[in-house]
């Protein structure tokens, strides 16, 4: 009985298959949940309408209907499109999301890869999506797509900086780049000698958290930073020419990335899978951890989506001004202050 389980776990394909499955769940489950809870229901609530109600109870199966619809649609290639690049672009964007989720810990032992430079890896692979978006914008052979792709490139590269700098504060405080150790540092930390709730870095790194949220919003191209897709100007930006499954992939990519970024934010600032009151080494967290994580993800994404529903869109130059004139100086200051305090205490 236990024989084949051992062989399963010792073989290459066993754990790899499980990891793949886990990765898919970790990416798609939050994405689907976000689309239903926030995009369909919260957005409708904010805009005083009821949203989808027909498919399933309270419209809960609407998402499946949408996916089914996308699969039925024709996969259209513009005549002048660079076919290979056009076809690959959505996969490149989605690949970045799947690479991101690799380093996120869901419990003391529930992780895909435990890298010593986890957060560094995460920030590096998050930039891969820029390539996919540029590919989409260029290969579509459409002016709207091109403008959208260029805007996306400018925006994503600019906002990598405050994102990285905001993380620096956390890294200084935790003294490690390993995501798992960052969680443990928060669980075992103390606030002025009191360790009742550990030391979630949102308390000491509040400025960092705010900057991280804003930069994340921009990285996700959510309003008010949605110039790359600005539907009233550029129709749909780099996605204009996509239809069917490939559009669906972009769409999944958008919301899955929102979920994964929220996971990283909750690991960095909200204590990840850990909740106060339980020993962080307890095996219980391997079961509860993912659920705790999911709760924290919902909290962070609530902020993201609330901004999305409320705010108008920046202009491209205003966005860059915000980045270079406010976010980067403030985050640099944050690093200096954190470093000084780290040395003092």
């Amino acid at each position: 009985m236990s024989g084949w389980i051992d062989t399963f776990f010792d073989s290459y394909w066993g754990p790899t298959g499980l990891r793949t499955l886990g990765g898919l769940v970790a990416v798609l489950l939050p994405a689907g949940a976000l689309v239903y809870i926030y995009l369909f229901k919260l957005m409708s609530f904010v805009q005083s309408r009821i949203g989808p109600m027909e498919a399933g109870p309270q419209g809960s199966l609407q998402l499946l209907a949408e996916v089914g619809k996308a699969f039925q649609k024709e996969d259209i290639f513009p005549r002048k499109a660079d076919k290979i690049v056009f076809a690959l672009a959505p996969f490149v964007v989605l690949m970045s999301t799947f690479l991101l989720v690799l380093v996120v810990p869901f419990g003391p032992d529930a992780w895909f890869v435990n890298l010593d430079t986890g957060i560094y890896f995460a920030l590096a692979v998050s930039s891969v999506s820029v390539i996919g978006i540029l590919m989409a914008g260029w290969a579509s052979a459409s002016k709207y797509s091109l403008l959208g792709g260029l805007r996306a490139a400018g925006q994503l590269i600019a906002y990598e900086l405050p994102l990285v700098l905001a993380v620096m504060g956390v890294v200084i405080q935790a003294g490690t780049l390993n995501m798992q150790d960052i969680v443990l540092a928060q669980a075992e930390g103390e606030i002025f000698g009191w360790g009742g709730i550990g030391n979630p870095f949102i308390l000491t790194q509040f400025v960092g958290f705010a900057i991280f949220l804003i930069a994340m919003q921009a990285e996700l191209t959510q309003p008010p930073f949605d110039m790359p897709v600005a539907e009233s100007e550029l129709v749909s930006g780099y996605m204009t020419e996509y239809s069917g499954v490939r559009f669906l992939l972009f769409f999944i990519g958008e919301f899955a990335t929102a979920g994964v970024f929220a996971m990283i934010a909750s690991v960095l600032f909200l204590g990840g899978w850990w909740v106060p009151g339980i020993d962080p080494d307890s095996n219980l967290f391997n079961i509860v951890g993912p659920a705790v994580m999911f709760g924290k993800v919902l909290f962070v994404t609530l902020l993201i989506f609330w901004f999305r529903f409320t705010y108008p869109r920046f202009r491209e130059d205003q966005l860059q001004r915000l980045c270079w004139k406010f976010l980067i100086p403030i985050s640099l200051l944050n690093i200096v202050v954190t470093g000084v305090l780290k040395v003092v205490f």
């Binding site: 904010v46 805009q47 005083s48 309408r49 309003p223 008010p224 949605d226 600005a230 539907e231 009233s232 529903f309 409320t310 705010y311 108008p312 869109r313």
Partner: peptide, 11 residues
């Protein structure tokens, strides 16, 4: 909608 906020039009 023109400036990218979708909520006002529903109101």
């Amino acid at each position: 909608v023109q400036v990218g906020a979708v909520t006002p039009i529903f109101f």
